[in-house]
Amino acid sequence: MLKLRDGIVELYRKAATSLPPDVEDALRSAHAAETEGANAKAVLSAILENIRIARETARPICQDTGVPVFFVKVPIGLSQVELKGTIIEATRIATEKVPLRANAVDILTDKNSGDNTGIGFPVIYFEETMDSILTIDLMLKGSGCENAGQMYKLPIEELKAERDLEGVRRCVLDTVYKAQGRGCPPYILGVGIGASKDQVTRLAKDQLMRKLNKPNPDEVLARLEERLLIEVNQLGIGPLGFGGMTTAIGVRIGVNHRHPASYFVDISVCCWANRRGRLIW
């Protein structure tokens, strides 16, 4: 487990300091689309410059290295208890070495643990797999954008949102309108639809791990994702909220089966710094 521990420390470093190429490409396109001389374009150049400096100097892209969220696919027979211990140990080391900002705060004492570990911190989701390989996906989810997320219980009369995909469309637009520029747009929007609250929030987060250049395998959802991306950008909030062409660079929707009485929609908003990485073992 020692080598794996070091691998996870490296995964932290890579996720924190080097933005995935598909996200950077989308930001370059956004930069090209903005008007010459506009502040929206200037802040996007600063962002692209920041991405380059962070990668070259191996420093975190954003000072908020967020809540680490792990999605782990575990082969049969590998101990989840041991894996959890290794992830926690790697988190302590990465906080010191990368470095990450210490973000875990005790609810009762208000004390920062200083090493990014605590009750339910980092967030770790395990899933057993028939594969023989261990896959560890890590997302560093900044909290400015986490705070911009919303959950909806359809139907909602004010939005004329019924229990269908048209209702979901209205929820996504409502979330982005309410978020304005506070969560660092251009955004990536993860949407989870299903029967229970705990499940849709996880599903929404999971969508943020999908690459921006790969369309949804389901045609109906792929069409809705495309349509929503266009419509969200019509809101005109723009990069960092300065107004402009690009408010989002991706919409990603995932579905579960639902209960006849329930239709939950969770929308996880991710800032332009969609920091994610994968370790295969």
Partner: peptide, 13 residues
């Protein structure tokens, strides 16, 4: 003043 959101090393420099 609104500075550049997320540009943490650019600004630290």
């Amino acid at each position: 003043f609104h500075t550049v959101s997320g540009a943490a090393v650019y600004l630290a420099d």
